[in-house]
């Protein structure tokens, strides 16, 4: 069985994470679109922390014996990996968009300079 102290500590940390994410969304420093995974992470960790019986059951399903909170670590790590992967796709998209913008700027600027010089003549 999970020690009570760990349950209390993990629940508090999960609640803090959720509160932090909410605050970032509320103050518009984090777009909902990028916050969804963080909210999911916080919720899953909160449920697994507070619901002691559930954590034990899942631990026994996946063959973790003796120390159920190990499942908390594993799930937490999995979500961190998911969040990182998500950000990699976001960065890739931004890179592509950035390149397209740079190309458009070059094309438009060249056209603009040509028009300016032709009206001056």
């Amino acid at each position: 069985m999970t020690p009570l102290k760990i349950t209390i500590a993990a629940t508090i940390v999960s609640l803090l994470l959720l509160a932090g994410v909410f605050e970032l969304i509320r103050s518009r420093r984090l777009r909902e679109r990028y916050a969804l995974l963080w909210l999911a992470t916080g919720l899953v960790l909160l449920v697994l922390s507070a619901w002691r019986g559930g954590l034990n059951t899942i631990a026994s399903w996946v063959g973790v014996r003796g120390y159920p909170p190990a499942v908390l670590f594993a799930v937490g790590l999995l979500f961190v990996i998911l969040v990182l992967l998500h950000y990699s796709t976001v960065i890739s998209r931004l890179t592509d968009q950035n390149a397209t913008l740079a190309q458009r700027v070059a094309l438009i600027e060249s056209e603009l300079r040509e028009r300016r010089s032709s009206t001056r003549d």
């Binding site: 390149a99 740079a102 190309q103 700027v105 070059a106 094309l107 600027e109 060249s110």
Partner: peptide
């Protein structure tokens, strides 16, 4: 001349 505002590399 098409002047790119920063270096995109050969492909870009």
């Amino acid at each position: 001349v098409l002047q790119l505002p920063f270096n995109l590399g050969i492909g870009g």
